[in-house]
């Protein structure tokens, strides 16, 4: 029982670590405040589920989840080329809302607010990931691969160039950096990994509905990034661990469930307030969270 509970938390940490790392690439490294990240998460979840439930193998649904989310990342990068700072944030917020509306209203495809139940557990080349242990291993491997791939990317010229456009686009361009292309790449790669996390989430919970992929989720991911530190992948993992575990004690103090939900939100909000006052760079971060909103160019 306790083992199952711990495994469940570990699986969530893996999924949210992928989400916060991928958001960190867009927001922490490239400096584009993205309030639509949950939409990529949702697109990946729905894409994977619909493909697998149409009879295709899990690995195909999983890859497609990333690819389709990446395609939407490319779409969202188009306004990102023209907007900066809080204007871009509003555009990404609208994008998240559009995706949520589509998931709610395109009922033939998504079953709308009813959601999709009975999602099968993954099976890859005959290996069934139907136990908690097996699922944890799968989630851990994918999170680890995501970490190493992202770390490799962000330590390369690509990562340094992203930081440069975060700091000052004009100066980056004067050094030969194609700012538009870099922003597009950041959105595509970030959305790809968020899509993979969506697939991992959907096949674990085995039920998805549009209400899961809303602004509140993005805020949680942003909080993980901000707490761990902008521009630090390890920080994002740490942020995911802390924010997944932190509200858990609430389960054991016997509060009615109607109180526990709002209390979680209050805790998250309180952490954010303490964070911006006491440790604006986050635990392992390199730059101030507010710096990307107030455009310093």
């Amino acid at each position: 029982m306790i083992e199952a509970y711990i495994l469940h938390l570990l699986i969530f940490i893996c999924i949210y670590a992928i989400l916060s790392m991928s958001l960190n690439l867009i927001t922490g490294y490239a400096g584009m405040l993205n309030l639509g990240h949950a939409a990529f998460f949702g697109i990946g979840a729905y894409a994977s589920v619909l493909i697998v439930m149409a009879g295709f193998p899990f690995w195909l649904g999983f890859i497609a989840a990333g690819a389709i989310a990446a395609f939407f990342g490319l779409l969202l990068s188009v306004p990102a080329l023209r907007l900066r700072g809080d204007f871009l944030a509003i555009a990404t917020l609208a994008f998240g809302e559009i995706i949520r509306s589509i998931l709610v209203n395109w009922t033939e495809f998504t079953r709308g607010p009813l959601g999709i139940p009975g999602i099968p557990k993954p099976e890859i080349f005959g290996i069934a990931f139907d136990s908690l242990w097996m699922y944890f291993i799968l989630a851990f491997i994918i999170a680890a691969v995501a970490y190493f791939v992202l770390r490799h990317l962000l330590n390369s010229n690509f990562g340094i160039a992203l930081k440069a456009i975060r700091e000052n686009e004009s100066v980056a361009a004067s050094l030969g950096k194609n700012v538009n292309l870099l922003k597009m790449q950041a959105f595509v790669v970030g959305a790809f990994f968020a899509g993979l996390a969506g697939s991992l989430f959907a096949h674990y919970i085995t039920f998805i509905d549009p209400g899961t992929f809303v602004l509140g989720e993005t805020i949680l991911m942003l909080l993980m990034v901000a707490l761990g530190g902008m521009g630090s992948l390890e920080g994002s993992i740490l942020g995911a661990i802390i924010l997944i575990l932190l509200p858990e004690p609430l389960r054991f103090i016997g509060l009615p469930s109607a109180v526990v939900g709002p209390l979680r939100q209050i805790i998250y909000a309180a952490i954010l307030i303490v964070l911006v006052i006491k440790k604006p760079r986050g635990l392992l971060g390199t730059q101030w969270f507010g710096g990307i909103v107030s455009d310093s160019n």
């Binding site: 010229n157 340094i160 160039a161 930081k163 440069a164 975060r166 700091e167 000052n168 100066v171 980056a172 361009a173 004067s174 050094l175 030969g176 950096k177 194609n178 700012v179 390199t286 730059q287 710096g291």
Partner: peptide, 29 residues
Amino acid sequence: YRIARLGIGRIFQTGGVFKNMTVLENLLV
């Protein structure tokens, strides 16, 4: 950026360095 790649570089009156990046990173960019 294409003009920069032709071999035209500049030094700015203000704000030319990436302040939140290390000195080495500034050069590696």
